[in-house]
Every structure is written in structure tokens, then in C-alpha cells.
Simulated assay, not measured.
Amino acid sequence: MTVTIYDVAREAGVSMATVSRVVNNNPNVKPQTRKKVYEAIERLGYRPNAVARGLASKKTTTVGVVIPDISNAIFAEVARGIEDIANMYHYNIILCNADKRKEKEIRVVNTLLEKQVDGLLFMGGTVTDEHLQAFSTSNVPIVLCATTDEKGTMPSVDIDHEGAAFDAVQRLLSAGHRRVGMISGTLQDPANGFARYQGYKRALESAGLSLDEQYVRIGNYKYESGMEAAQYFIALPERPTAIFAATDEMAIGAIHAIQDAGLKVPEDISVIGIDNIRMASMVRPQLTTVAQPMYDIGAVSMRLLTKLMKKEPVDQAKVVLPHELIERRSVASI
């Protein structure tokens, strides 16, 4: 039989209102009475009914999080930042994987809203008009996490992706490289793809170099596509002396393809990435990269969402966090 608040009240010899105050951490309960109620709860194995409490308060203290790829270490670090701040403010998290598929992302968003979450964090992925249409039906706050919408109309927390790519390529150019290849993400992705491509292009232009399309390959952010792109570069009659990869995972794939071809990194080809995933310091040579503050992106996103849910003042609804160049051993001067 399910233990109810009535059973706890009868066991403790108090009113149901007193049990409710104890369960909801109301300070207006004598310590001795509070102790009796907690002892009764423990003896009976009572668990408050979150659904019933949500119906009464019209709050579920639950936040939905849409994550594009649960196997990606980057998003795992963002999720950790989200959860730490959620715990601090006594919110529970429902984490949903969307496999980087637009139709599934929109379906998951609608499902979470039907679950009566108090707020929603949409992590990563391209924000299309279809996404914005789904978001517009929500009566709870939504914050974009590690992504933005092109029009900048929604609250968001991210980095300057074009600036991060510019700094990465600038590092190669300052080392004397003039033939710099890029392993890009899909250009339909405004952040990790197109913005980072634009940063690469701008850096070349700032050095008086024109973009050579043979030095650009489109990957899918994964290790294997980094290997394939590097193999293509190595086979060119005039191969690049350096490679900029739009993600660390593709950069590590490029390093291994270069080594498999009997060449050395950075002596023959330098490699630089973006993200600063854990593997960047484990691969040999260790990968020079531009770090995203992934934990901070998650933590700041969740804090922004708590303010919106509680209708607190928000100084800045569009937050751009700083990136940082991490020097390791995969870039050499020529």
C-alpha cells in the first residue's frame, strides 16, 4: 500500500498541515515536532508525491535539458555544470538525447513541455525556424546552451566561435605557416560549422592570404572524418604545413592519419583544434587547442534559467563567455 501524508500525520500524532510544513522545509515548526515527523517518515518509508505537489504549486521543480549527442565528452561537461547549479537551486534534471536530428530535437522539446517542466535548456545543435516555432508555444522560459539563434532573440550562453577559430588559425600563421588546411564542420551549422569557417577565412585574409578551397574539407565533428580529411590533405601535390580542425576530436583523427602516413606532428604538419576535450592532453603529441569553458557554459546557462523561472532581474540575456588558447606540443614554427 502507498504510504500517504495522512499515515505520517497519524503515526507522528500531528496534523497533515504540520507534516506538509516539515516536508516543504517550512521554518515554522518546532524542532521537537520536526524530529517526530522525520522519524515517522523514516519508519513508514514515506515519499512525497511530486506530481501532487506540482499540481498544487503549479511547479514541478524540474528542468528539461535537450542534449545533441550524449556520447560526446563536450556535452557531458556542459551537463555537469548544469546539474551542479540545478542541485544548488533544488531543481531536478530530465536529460534527453536528440542524436543531432532536427525532427527528434523538436519532438523532445514538445515532450518535455508536455511533462510540465518549469524551464528548458536547449544544448547545441542548429536553431532553425522550426525550433523557434516549437519554442514559441512554451509558457516556460527556454535558454539556449552552447548555441545561439541567428537572430539573437532568445536567451543564450555560448562563446564567440568565429573569434575562437580566428585565434587558432592566427596561432598557426604566427608560426610561419602559409598553407593552412581546415577540417570544418557542416556549414549549415551556424556555430561549430559556419562561424568557425568564417574565423578561418578572416584569419587568412588578415595575413594577406586568399582562401584556397582545396585546403578546406567538411567533416562531421567525429574522429573518423578528421582522419579522412587529413589523408586527403597528405595526398595533395602541395600538402598544407598545418591543419586547423573545427573540433578536437577531428584534430586527433588528423594527428593519427598523419602518423599512419609515416609523417610527424608537428615536424611535418602542425595541428590545432578547438574545445580542449580531455583527450587533447592524452594524445601524443599533446594537442594545442582553443578551450571552450564547457562547465561554465552549463553552469551559467542554468543560473540564467533559474533567474528567468523565478522572474528575477536579468542584466544580460545573451552571454558570451571567453575562450582561451591552450599551448601544447602539436604546433611548430617553420
Rank of each mutant, 00 (worst) to 15 (best):
M1H: 07
D7F: 11
V8Y: 06
M16F: 01
V19A: 13
V22F: 05
N24S: 12
P31S: 10
Q32D: 14
R34E: 15
E39N: 10
P48A: 04
N49H: 08
A50W: 01
G54I: 08
S57M: 09
G64E: 09
F75G: 03
A76E: 08
V78E: 06
A79C: 11
G81V: 06
D84K: 05
I85H: 15
A86I: 11
I93A: 03
I106T: 02
V109M: 08
N110H: 11
V117K: 00
L121G: 01
F122K: 02
M123P: 07
D129A: 09
A134K: 03
V140I: 12
A146H: 12
T153A: 13
E162I: 01
G163I: 04
A165N: 07
A165V: 13
A165T: 03
V169P: 05
H177Y: 07
V180A: 05
G181V: 05
G181P: 06
M182D: 02
S184H: 03
T186W: 09
D189W: 02
P190L: 13
A191V: 09
G193Q: 12
Y197F: 09
K201W: 06
S206F: 02
D212M: 10
Q214P: 10
Y215D: 05
N220L: 11
G226N: 04
M227Y: 12
A229M: 05
F233L: 05
R239L: 04
T241Y: 01
A251W: 08
D260Q: 15
G273F: 06
L287C: 13
D296V: 04
A299K: 06
L304V: 12
M309R: 07
E312H: 08
P313S: 13
Q316H: 11
A317Y: 14
V319W: 06
V320Q: 00
E324P: 00
I334T: 09
